[in-house]
Write a protein that binds this DNA or RNA. Structure first.
Lengths: 243, 243
DNA sequence: CCAATAGTGTCTTTCAGACACTATAGT
DNA sequence: ACTATAGTGTCTGAAAGACACTATTGG
């Protein structure tokens, strides 16, 4: 009988208690990228609690099941706490879960990566930028497997820069095409062809000229652009190739 | 002092008990695709327990933190239980987590998608194929948000078929180029150009002729191919376009 | 012979790569 | 005038799309 099944299900749910089971830890971690001084940087923060107390780590933490509606909201909250930044580019990388990454036990972490403009960031305490080398390696010894998470995120970023307009999101509101090209070159790790790059970006329809505004560079004036409102990530049918 | 920090950390870990915290449910779900009768199909299984007892759902379940080393192993185990299949194409889709998808409470699920050849499957009880329509929708009302998970996985599959050799993995050991092209057409939902398709696949270097073997089709003989051993997923620099 | 599918050849189109050219500002 | 960077024009080449052609088998 359907009614009786419903009744049984209600009883099952009333009696259900997650603490009757052996469960993994579940957390969220965020790799926050920016570009500073022609280098890719990642935001790291010093841990104030065990485990790995005092070590540097990427921002993250546990889901607050009372307050968070969904996991992206958890990520956004953590990001805002560390950067004061409301609406960056934020994308899920995936989940990593195994029995060895956390000394507290079996751990699953859902990792996100974000792109921000460095000037928009308001640091919380014990937070700073750390630059990556050309292969996505960081200088510091980090807590947990965070160095690996950063490497994977960096690979995804580099990969995605080959066929999308993702690099736009590290720039401030106003920027020149040369600045944008330089961002791509830093992320991709190689030189790009100027006229080809401009053709491609313009066709992507993701930026627009700011009428009458230009910027003084080392030599001559350069046209300023802004991100266009409609599309914030264009996918190309063909990859760009650096070097 | 370093030694004292180590001591403190040891004590912290000894005292640490996950059940002192409010934690979400964490599970793994797998969308298993194949092609049968010119249609994309997904493997579904009937739930034997609450919640959603008796409903159809995709395979999945909780991580066994005593036995599973990592989360991919959990997925592989679940897949093997339902299909008897050892080494299919298996890729992580991502994690979905929110407070409404599971009546037991806040739930995070790590979803995988797999491609298998239908003939290799040995069904467990209460398991069957269900076909998708052109937009990735399934007929049945499924448990939880599984219909959405399937849709997302299908979008990823269709997308990935545009620039990789992924469709290879639904075929049996030996196949013809026309059969492979048909698989792509079914996944992509449109017709492909024959000579262009062949050029592309051959260049991908993922298949090889089986010398001297051919297959009788409705009219004439067709060369048989097998997957080549070295590369099992080739990424093209440019997308293919259906229709 | 015809029907139907396997398999090939070739012209067109699209878009990235290369590279040289012109334009403009400070010194 | 010189230098450095902004910005453009145009040729080349790689690979996809279109489409017609030939090849092979059963009836």
């Amino acid at each position: 009988m359907k009614a009786s099944t419903n009744q049984q299900e209600k009883e099952f749910l009333t009696r259900y208690n997650i603490h009757d089971y052996e469960v993994p830890l579940t957390s969220v971690d965020i790799v926050i990228f920016t570009i500073i001084n022609e280098e890719v940087n990642v935001l790291i923060t010093q841990r104030s609690d065990f485990p790995f107390k005092g070590y540097w780590a990427i921002p993250g933490g546990f889901i607050d099941i009372k307050k968070d509606k969904n996991i992206k909201q958890t990520a956004q909250k953590k990001l805002r706490e560390k950067t004061g930044y409301g609406a960056p580019y934020l994308e899920q990388l995936g989940a990593i879960g195994n029995d060895s990454r956390d000394p507290r036990g079996w751990s699953v972490t859902v990792t996100y990566f974000a792109l921000v403009n460095a000037e928009d960031i308001i640091f919380s305490t014990d937070t700073r930028w750390s630059h990556l080398d050309k292969d996505g390696n960081i200088q510091q010894k980090l807590a947990f497997d965070h160095a690996e998470l950063i490497q994977e995120a960096f690979q995804r970023l580099r990969n995605k820069a080959q066929y999308t307009t993702i690099a736009l999101h590290v720039l401030p509101e106003k920027f020149t095409l040369s600045e944008l090209q330089r961002c791509y070159e830093i992320i991709l790790g190689g030189e790009l062809n100027k006229s080809g790059f401009r053709r491609r970006i313009i066709k992507g329809n993701v930026i627009e000229k700011i009428a009458g505004e230009s910027k003084q560079t080392v030599t001559r004036m350069a046209q300023l652009y802004r991100k266009s409102e409609d599309e914030n990530l264009h996918f190309y049918m063909r990859e760009i190739y650096a070097k």
